[in-house]
Write a protein that binds this DNA or RNA. Structure first.
Length: 287
DNA sequence: AAGAGGCCCTGATAGC
DNA sequence: TGCTATCAGGGCCTCT
């Protein structure tokens, strides 16, 4: 599901339910994710109270009252669902495998007083990792570039980073070491609004274009957040509500459709860049 | 040392 | 209907 806007939406819907609440119990149904969920995770977070929910790029971070953190990455298909408890006294796993739940790939159940939060991930590209201090969390995140809503995402940084890069700008936008939070959908959208050809090398991006990228990245991502994220394949917030930014797409998933720019008669085309679909208007993004 | 490509996984859909 | 191939909001690892 998850680029920055979708994770932000999950954060916003989750925080209303779980802030200042205690995780009574944890049931690990399937430890196999990108990295195995550690066996004693239950010991570490059961009976801990949640102080806040944070987000850094595509990471959701549960911050407990003490200096403890649970980092969640959603990979391609990870989701969180909030489900009401029918009977809060039942905690055996078979109970939670009721027919109403998408239980095939439910990896973890976080049990609260009146509801539970379920981490589900069919493709298992996501992961869940615990840190017992802010220092360790930050160490884990040390190689990530600035989140587009952080101060570090500025002209000076981009200019310096791009100066000798032979990699194309599309792949650069997807590189979390450069900027963290942008994924395959929003990379295409941002480059269209910036009028930049996705194959252009980083070192050839002009100062004018750097400013465009900064401005349009913030524009696209914040608009997507306002619209509840993009639901191209069942993305929902924790309460099951879908987003609507897919209706605003200018290029993504719009192969053979008309360019949305006024007076442009070009059709959007799909090209592959490093085996990933990229959508462009060849007229508006000539350079 | 930067960059390209393979690979990890399941599920939905298209085409035969 | 049922097979196979392709593709999907990501990113780590290996090789050059």
């Amino acid at each position: 599901m998850p680029e920055l806007p979708e994770v932000e939406i999950v954060k916003q819907s989750l925080i209303k339910s779980v802030q200042f609440k205690k995780i009574n119990n944890l049931i690990i149904n399937n430890r196999n994710l990108r990295f195995k969920i550690e066996k004693n995770l239950k010991k570490k977070i059961a009976n801990k109270r949640i102080k806040n929910i944070l987000r850094k790029s595509k990471y959701l971070i549960i911050n407990f009252e003490k200096d403890e953190y649970l980092l969640i990455h959603f990979g391609m298909s990870g989701t969180l669902h909030q489900v009401k408890n029918k009977n809060k006294f039942k905690t055996n796993l078979s109970f939670y495998h009721s027919k109403n739940l998408p239980n095939d790939h439910n990896h973890v159940y976080f049990l609260f007083d009146n509801f539970k939060i379920i981490y589900n991930d069919p493709r298992r590209f996501g992961f869940i990792k615990y840190f017992n201090s802010n220092d360790k969390l930050n160490f884990f995140l040390r190689n990530y570039g600035p989140d587009p809503f952080e101060n570090g995402f500025n002209f000076k940084y981009l200019k310096k980073y791009l100066i000798n890069k032979t990699k194309n700008i599309k792949n650069l936008l997807l590189d979390q070491k450069f900027i963290s939070g942008i994924g395959n959908i929003y990379a295409s959208e941002i480059l269209f609004y910036s009028k930049i050809n996705p194959l252009k090398k980083g070192k050839n991006i002009s100062q004018y274009e750097i400013n465009k990228i900064i401005k349009k990245t913030k524009f696209v991502l914040s608009k997507a957040i306002k619209k509840g994220g993009s639901s191209i394949r069942n993305f929902k917030n924790t309460k099951g509500k879908i987003g609507s930014y897919q209706e605003e797409f200018v290029v993504y998933n719009r192969e053979n459709k008309n360019c949305k720019r006024k007076n442009c008669k070009e059709k959007i085309v799909k090209i592959n860049i490093s085996k990933r679909s990229t959508f462009i208007c060849k007229y508006c993004q000539k350079k």
